[in-house]
Design a binder for these strands. Structure first.
Length: 122
RNA sequence: AUAGGCGGUCGGAUAGCUGCGUCGGGCAACCGGCGAGGAAAGUCCGGGCUUCAUGGAAACAAAAUACCAGAUAACGUCUGGCUGGGGCGACCCAAGGGAAAGUGCCACAGAAAAUUACCGCCGCGGCUUGUUCGCGGUAAGGUUGAAAAGGCGAGGUAAGAGCUCACCGCAAAGCCGGCAACGGUUUUGGCCAGGUAAACCCUAUUUGAAGCAAGACCAAGUUAGGAGGGCUUUUAUUAAAAAGUUGUGCGGGGUGUUUCCAACCCACUCCAGAGGUAGGUCGCGACGAGCAAGAUGGUGACAUCUUGCCCAGAUGAAUAGCUAUCGUUUUGUUGUGCUGCAAAGUAGAACAAAAUACAGAACCCGGCUUAUAGGCCGCCUGAAUAU
């Protein structure tokens, strides 16, 4: 089990976007990078919904759905000491919720495998 | 009932599982309260609040507003009225200072855009006696145009003309009604004369600016005594170098601009100290131009009084995610009742499908504007249709 904290600083978002890994699926985009300050059994996660998606209430709904999905998916599968960023897509607010969770699970496993590879090569 | 006008209101519900923010209680586990909108939107006006170092005077500039009276903390908002326009009507209107202060623009057309005569009409005259020429009168008719110097009828005349008269319109003056905008009426004047002010402009009134990323407070880290700059003097062709000094005066800057007066502030820049970045706390939500109900006054906007209530406070930003059932609307299919010969109309039922809006507080209030599936309620209208 991994405890999930919210990522708040703009600096961290920029770091993850520029230096981290990226996986694209239907409904969401997942980015990840190793945290600077490593703590046991916790990861940080941030949500992004750009203005491209729509007006404020649509962006809010996108983030809420991502948050609800994260609550069910992340504690089992996420790695500790990693910063994740979830980016909403045009269909995040309207797509089937079960599908959203499945896609998130797949994306998370994929990106975790890549991260582990990176650690090993180091 | 259909149709239409005006105003108001709601804008999904219930259950389960999983969660979030905040406040209160508790050592803790946890428990309890509260948790988006009518527009939270656009950021277009008006205020509160905050800062810009102040107070006062004058001029200029810029912007906004523009019938009258009232409401309000204030407004460009609202209410009631006036005039004009639209509608059969209920009602509606992004309509409302000044065009005889001045400037500009109005293509083209037309004889002519102002003391206008092309055609026409009338009179007089000439001789080549006629589809003739000249002189004069004439704005009734024709043409153009946005506009041809009141309209229309009668009298009048050679033909005509406000030349005269009636009615209508216009202007001025008086009287009456109204707080006023304005309305009514009488007399007088033959009638000064297009539009555009969302062209400049003129008149009146109002306005200092920027905004909670305002602003107040706490304060890691970094920076280590210096670096760069100005001024003066000396040397030097210049470039530059050295030394001194860095603060009093002069002078300079300080809310749109300029000017004036008073008092004041700033001071060479960065860094240590001072200060203040990251970050944090406050501002910030429960005392308010507050909300609800009632009473009184007022046509009304609204005001006053009484009683009760406390009602979101996030900051990568809570107020939800999912599932089920139901509701609402539309469409299709099926079958039923009623009217009807039939076509068809109408009422309710079952099943299926689709749709279920606009949109998310960010310092707070009062407005305006714009967006909005669908539903409900009240008052009112009558060219018309049906019973």
């Amino acid at each position: 089990m991994v405890e999930v904290f919210i990522l708040k600083k703009r600096k961290d978002f920029v770091r993850v976007a520029s230096k981290g890994l990226k996986v694209v699926t239907s409904g969401l985009i997942l980015q990840a990078a190793l945290s600077l300050s490593v703590q046991d059994d916790c990861c940080h996660i941030g949500y992004t919904a750009t203005k491209k998606l729509g007006k404020a209430h649509i962006r809010n709904r996108t983030k809420r759905r991502l948050r609800a999905a994260v609550r069910e998916v992340f504690p089992q599968t996420a790695l500790s000491g990693v910063d994740y960023v979830l980016i909403g897509r045009y269909n995040t607010a309207t797509c089937d919720f079960q599908k959203l969770k499945d896609n998130m699970h797949k994306a998370l496993e994929q990106i975790n495998a890549l991260l582990n590879e990176k650690k090993v090569t180091k």
